[in-house]
Design a protein around this nucleic acid. Structure first.
Length: 688
DNA sequence: GCAAGGTC
């Protein structure tokens, strides 16, 4: 029997269907499915899917007590790999014992090579005779053509490529564990409150912190704008003074006076230009997530919804970097599927009638998986409303990538009013092209007045508006994921979970994303004493080194050893400045505990944990002079809102519980706003 | 109770 090992179940199943020409028997070991089939020549095959990585890198048990081990020891300690998905390992080894050959068919990327090597080592443990009969099949799409090709032209597993992945694993754990423990111990944040540090999470946090500091440093500058309401066909319209921002109020008022003195304006120029809007590139994970968050979904929800649709068979694999459809992908077949959709049939049919399809191409062409495309049309009732929205987004994006360029017309009219220059502009779509399939984010046409050069228009009103320049906005989750990609941070499969980690650690909150004081002080401290870990360059450098390992220019051990030396330097630096470093972070943590002013004495109220009862409550900093205290909910994380309750004057807080809506309340339990809640609770208790 | 990377 020949054993085929894939990275995931869906791939194992699909490969069996393609190579087994439909005659496939599904079985399982320890609830792990595998597929038995024979090829044309009567050879027996088994294909089995892993669940991604099945081994976990960790420190040996003697390092597990944080208090008893100096973090420095972690830098040079041995690392061990242990099975993380036991039933998969058992199923794989059971199948391997019966096999005479093994074909590694994990994903066609670096992690895929490593997952393949891990699986191979486990298989050889169970059946050493397989060592002479190992092949690697590389495919970048689960299409019949590509799969048949990959299995007739198998190659060797690239051990150096897999070792590049191992170097990444080593470096991530060594740096992450050493710094996480060092910072947590130095600030006495142990147990569930620990403070984490990592090659990806820390530079990502820094992006968020830097934006917040820019906002704080921003000084708004006043400016003035002049608008003129004019009467013309087809309706009244508004022109703006050509000086977009008057920095000087006096100058603005002079221009205003001159324009107000005029009863009519003169059209001095009319210009229109046409612009081609090319169709958007196919969706990869990042562009999909950005588009889905623009519809109002959080990044985590967007990823989850795509995963649901993929597992239900409605869209293709959602974790991909690729933005170019592979040749083997049957675009017409996909359109044929879409013509079963009531809403999309007319669009799909229109494209199907064309002789040749010319799909758009993005900048990234990779071998991991095809871009995201619709696979099947869900029936009403099969999926919920959110999934429905996401499916349509994916399906419409697919149609858009096959559409023609849209053509827009941009118009500009110049006017003179009382000797002052005014202008207005607008644009409209002349030819819809792909926009007919993909209406998301489309701006409305601005209707331009029908005016000719030399024409006079009636001035109805001229007004002055005073405004202020605005600080740069906070990042939304979709934007952050895009920024991470641009900075080379994380991967398509991990970026959203990195953000989740930052939320879980209390480094960031809300959306758009803002850092907490703990997050800000953490970055300040790391930037000062261990700045390598806060910089995207660490990842960039690792990427080059991984390429060198893959090309056998350098060994995995050399790269890891060099990285250890750098970490020793950083460690010394931290150790020499331990008090300042810890002080900085503790200051931030303390600031996050402040919830607002005490209504009795005006000093700060803060969250305190009772040493005796271990319960938390709000107490006044003026204690013992002021003994104001309030009880707190014991579950969820407490966030200040910097608002006070209009009824009782006590500060309002927000309580965040997993899976629940944030709960905003004032901290005074006797506040009149609580009456209704108390009544309800009393009724509930009375009833039960 | 450490990271980041897979996948469910």
């Amino acid at each position: 029997m020949k054993l085929i090992v894939t990275e995931k179940n869906t791939a194992a199943k699909k490969i069996a269907e393609i190579l087994g020409a439909g005659k496939v028997k599904a079985e399982s070991y320890y609830k792990i499915p595998f597929y038995v089939f024979a090829n044309g020549g009567g050879e027996e095959f088994v294909s089995i899917g892993l669940k991604g990585h099945i081994l976990q890198l960790e420190y040996p048990p003697e390092y597990s007590d944080w208090r008893k081990v100096e973090p420095r020891e972690l830098i040079d300690a041995d690392l061990v790999k242990s099975p993380s998905a036991k039933s998969v390992v058992n199923a794989l080894q059971k199948a391997a014992r019966q096999a005479s050959r093994i074909i590694i068919a994990t994903d066609y990327d670096r992690e895929g090579e490593l997952i393949g090597l891990e699986a191979l080592e486990l298989a050889l443990q169970a059946n050493p005779k397989l060592a002479e009969h190992v092949k690697r099949a590389r495919y970048s799409a689960l299409t019949a053509e590509e799969i048949r090709n990959a299995f007739t032209n198998t190659v060797e597993l690239s051990v150096p490529l897999a070792q590049a992945g191992e170097a990444r694993q080593d470096i991530d754990l060594i740096w992450g564990a050493t710094l996480t423990r060092y910072i947590s111990l130095a600030t006495s944040r142990l147990g569930s409150q620990f403070l984490s540090v990592g090659r990806v999470q820390s530079p990502t946090l820094k992006l968020i912190v830097e934006r917040e500091l820019e906002r704080r440093a921003f000084v708004p500058v006043p400016y003035w704008q002049i608008f003129a309401d004019l009467a013309a066909e087809p309706g009244p319209f508004t022109a703006r003074h050509k000086t977009e921002r008057f920095q000087d109020k006096g100058a603005a008022e002079t221009a205003l006076g001159r324009a107000r003195a005029a009863e009519t304006g003169l059209v001095t120029g009319v210009k229109t230009t046409q612009k081609q809007l090319p169709p958007p590139p196919p969706f990869n994970t990042t562009s999909y997530t950005k588009a889905a968050t623009a519809l109002g979904f959080s990044a985590a929800r967007a990823v989850r919804l795509a995963e649901d649709l993929y597992l239900a068979g409605y869209i293709s694999y959602p974790r991909t970097d690729n933005t170019v459809y592979p040749e083997s992908l049957g675009l017409k077949e996909i359109l044929g599927q879409l013509s079963h959709s009531r809403e999309l049939k007319s669009h799909a049919d229109e494209l199907l009638e064309r002789g040749e399809l010319k799909p758009s191409r993005g900048k990234k062409q990779t071998t991991d998986h095809p871009p995201i495309y619709p696979v099947d049309v869900p029936k009403v009732g099969d999926i919920d409303e959110a999934q429905w929205k996401i499916w349509h987004l994916v399906a419409r994006r697919f149609l858009a990538t096959l559409g023609d360029s849209a053509v827009s017309e941009t118009g500009r009219i110049d006017l003179e009013i009382g000797g002052e220059p005014f202008m207005l502009s607008g644009s409209r779509i002349l030819e819809e092209g792909w926009l007919a399939y993909y209406p998301y984010g489309r701006s409305k046409d601005d209707e331009m007045p029908k005016l000719k050069q030399g024409e006079q228009v009636q001035v109805v009103k001229v007004s002055l508006e005073s405004k202020e320049t605005q600080p740069p906005g906070r990042y939304g989750q979709g934007r952050l994921i895009e920024l991470m990609e641009q900075n080379g941070l994380g991967t398509k499969a991990t970026r959203h979970s990195i953000l989740q980690t930052l939320y879980d650690r209390g480094y960031i909150r809300n959306t758009p994303v803002e850092p907490t004081e703990t997050g800000i002080s953490m970055i300040r401290a790391l930037d000062t004493y261990a700045n390598l870990i806060t910089r995207p360059e660490m990842t960039a450098r690792l990427e080059t080194e991984m390429s060198d390992i893959a090309e056998s220019k350098i060994t995995r051990e050399e790269v890891v050893q060099r990285s250890r030396a750098l970490l020793h330097d950083a460690y010394k630096m931290m150790e020499n400045n331990k008090e300042a470093l810890a002080g900085e972070i503790v200051k931030g943590i303390q600031e996050d505990k402040l919830v607002g002013a005490c209504p009795n004495c005006g000093k700060q109220l803060r969250v305190i944990r009772s040493k005796r009862t271990k319960k938390r409550f709000v107490g006044c900093e003026g204690y013992p002079e002021c003994s104001t205290t309030y009880p707190l909910p014991q579950r969820g994380s407490i966030m200040p809102t910097y608002k006070t309750c209009p009824e009782c004057g006590s500060p309002k807080i927000k309580v965040l519980n997993k899976g629940r809506r944030p709960w905003e309340l004032c901290i005074d339990p006797d506040c009149p706003t609580k009456e209704e809640y108390k009544l309800k609770r009393a009724q509930k208790e009375g009833a039960s």
